[in-house]
Write a protein that binds this DNA or RNA. Sequence first.
DNA 1: CCAATTCTGATAGTTGACTCTCAGATGAGA
DNA 2: TCTCATCTGAGAGTCAACTATCAGAATTGG
Lengths: 191, 191
Amino acid sequence: MNGGLRERKKAKTREAILREAFRLFRERGYHATTVEQIAEAAEISPATFFRYFPAKEDLVRLDRFPPLVEALAEQPPGRPVTVLRGAFRAAFASLSAEEIAAGHEREVFAATVPELLVANLRRSPDLIREVRALVADRAGLAPDDPGVRDAIGAVFGVVAMVWLEWARTPGMDGPAEIDRALANLESCLRG
Amino acid sequence: MNGGLRERKKAKTREAILREAFRLFRERGYHATTVEQIAEAAEISPATFFRYFPAKEDLVRLDRFPPLVEALAEQPPGRPVTVLRGAFRAAFASLSAEEIAAGHEREVFAATVPELLVANLRRSPDLIREVRALVADRAGLAPDDPGVRDAIGAVFGVVAMVWLEWARTPGMDGPAEIDRALANLESCLRG
DNA sequence: CCAATTCTGATAGTTGACTCTCAGATGAGA
DNA sequence: TCTCATCTGAGAGTCAACTATCAGAATTGG
């Protein structure tokens, strides 16, 4: 039931969809990639695509970026900004190993993330709530503490700005720049 | 040529489209409102709608929120965060007068702005560049100064978070909360 | 008042996201 | 192996954003 063939096949299909989708996004952009093309690349029917992802937009939800959420849960206690900065650091470190090995790190992020951040700000209060809960927990604060909210806003705002710049600046070291920018934040935002 | 009848009519049509569109957005949400409905409410044909706005999304561009841009230009010199905070303050003050009088202030913002912020983050590097230039000017820094970038990111991130909360918290004083949150930022972010 | 320009509505068409249905395939459990 | 539940592809269909065309109406400048 759990590790059955059926489950494994589904997981494989899901991965194939995501892999092909992001490859196509990288090659030709999000809007220029149709669901039909993704389905064809993943060797499934368009109808099946929607059985895995109710909407095309769901492909780019932030929970599709597990390293960050995982990294958040693993951060040592600290102030909100510190926790978030540490999580980004850790997430990048874990991903860089893989992606650098594949030689695509920067492209991957540049292509996927602007859409990703945006789609999520608009569509998933759930994710925000989750991040908020995680950060609050690590910081020993209530989830509805304004300090947590403000820290998350500031951090993601800064990350978004750097990311946009990174996407169009070839020589840039994105993770380092993000970390540097977050360091500036770390010195203030109390709570 | 400039104040001609033709120009005035176009301006009127444009205003009608925007007014009706936002009214409908407020009533039933952005996605649930079709261009056809907007066109009907504004008493034009759907085809004409697209002559005024190439895409539905263009209705919610941030340059449709002039008070902020104007307020930015009018801010006294100061550090980036200070300038931005002051601009938000001023923008709210100017708008509140009108909107409070009409009795819709909060609804208007709650309905329009999440879409607005998001659509712009994704679609208009131009606007970001403009804001960046304005802030940099007021702060006496270069437009590509990382400090300016980070301040803008942090400020808009915080504002976005508060706005989302505001949209679903009836009793909340949005502008005040935003100002309070920005005050926390003001003490750090150098340059 | 006339002619050139511009704007508009009507209409039809394209595209792509998303839904529905149904019959056949396939893994799960006995 | 047999049956049941689930998954899939195929195909047709809906809906809304957006485009293209074109003839008629209105505004302009002279």
